[in-house]
């Protein structure tokens, strides 16, 4: 299953990567219980470290996990 969702999130906290890179919006595949979505998330332009900010994890991402679990 490949969908686009509104999981995307812009980070406001000003995080910088320990490798020296910058966080930029990058295309990321989010997977759970056999479902896969493409979303835009902040990730390091050098090492590719993907950030899941607190508001996203505890908010929309949590809701989508619940919906997928009840499918």
């Amino acid at each position: 299953m490949r969908n686009r969702t509104d999981l995307g999130f812009v980070d406001e906290a000003g995080w910088r990567c320990g490798c020296g890179g910058r966080l930029v919006s990058r295309k990321v595949a989010a997977s759970y219980l056999g479902s896969r979505f493409e979303v835009e998330l902040p990730a390091c332009n050098e090492c590719g470290f993907i950030l899941v900010p607190e508001d996203l994890a505890m908010g929309r991402m949590f809701e989508v996990e619940k919906i997928l679990e009840d499918k």
Binding site: V28, A29, S31, G48, I50, V52, A57, M61
Partner: peptide, 28 residues
Amino acid sequence: FWVEYLPGDGAPEIVNAWSHRMTLELVE
């Protein structure tokens, strides 16, 4: 798990933590 902390000389002070179950990978 995500853990946010204040590094210091002694024990790091945990200021926040959150979690999710989804897994993520870069597409490009």
